[in-house]
């Protein structure tokens, strides 16, 4: 490549000093062949530089994103971002109102449950008197669900009339099985019980349902 052509190319690239530019332009204008070369080169570059710029088809970006490999492992950073990343939530009035209504309904429901729970009284007990006529007995005790059928726990008191008695604090609404134990060894069903049930050992348990008076 001769010097003139090199300068022409540098002129086209705008990588030339002022003096060199003046010099080559003077020679171009005075030499028809050189001028033709310069004009043809400029024209060729002009054709390329002014060619229509192409744009990608619609969906190009989506196609690329779909082609990306899925992340296989959630890094700690991703987990952290999941919880702490600032997110923009799009909303409209209808959605906002629906959310408010939902929250109100939930809160009302919770309030009702709490209120119902508060109105229910705590489990209450009442004193229930047990009587058993056994004037000959030396010792009578009451055994049942309420004391785990212990023979020696709930000892009854003998009255002058030969009736053994005891008061037991029992829960309202509960049903209890019980029997009297005479002298520590004889199991006796209460003849005055409301109901009876076989205990599977050959005896009949006495049944008491504790109701409010």
């Amino acid at each position: 490549m001769n010097k003139d052509m090199e300068l022409i190319h540098r002129l086209l690239d705008r990588e030339i000093s002022r003096e060199e530019e003046d010099d080559i332009l003077k020679r171009i204008n005075s030499d028809p062949l050189l001028k033709k070369e310069f004009d043809d080169l400029r024209q060729a570059i002009h054709v390329v530089e002014t060619a229509e710029r192409l744009t990608v088809h619609k969906g190009f970006t989506s196609a690329v994103m779909k082609g990306l490999p899925a992340s296989r492992i959630l890094s700690g950073r991703r987990i952290r971002d999941f919880f702490f990343k600032v997110r923009v939530v799009r909303w409209n009035m209808a959605t906002a109102l629906a959310m408010v209504c939902f929250v109100v309904i939930v809160l009302t429901g919770l309030f009702q449950i709490q209120r119902r729970h508060n109105l229910q009284p705590a489990e209450s007990t009442i004193a229930v008197r047990f009587n058993f006529y056994a004037p000959q007995a030396q010792r009578v005790s009451l055994a049942g669900d309420f004391n785990k059928w212990r023979v020696d726990e709930s000892l009854m008191r003998k009255q002058d009339n030969g009736i053994w008695t005891i008061e037991m604090p029992l829960k309202l609404g509960n049903t209890y099985n019980y029997m009297f134990v005479v002298d520590g060894k004889v199991w006796v069903t209460d003849p005055d019980a409301e109901a009876y049930r076989d205990d599977g050992f050959g005896y009949k348990n006495s049944i008491l349902r504790v109701n409010a008076l």
């Binding site: 710029r53 744009t55 970006t61 990306l68 959630l74 890094s75």
Partner: peptide
């Protein structure tokens, strides 16, 4: 760091250039 969605910004920015 595992946020591929951000890559779409770069794709849109340079897609025409690379296509040309």
């Amino acid at each position: 760091d595992g946020n591929p969605e951000a890559y779409a910004i770069l794709v849109r920015r340079y897609q025409d250039m690379i296509y040309n």
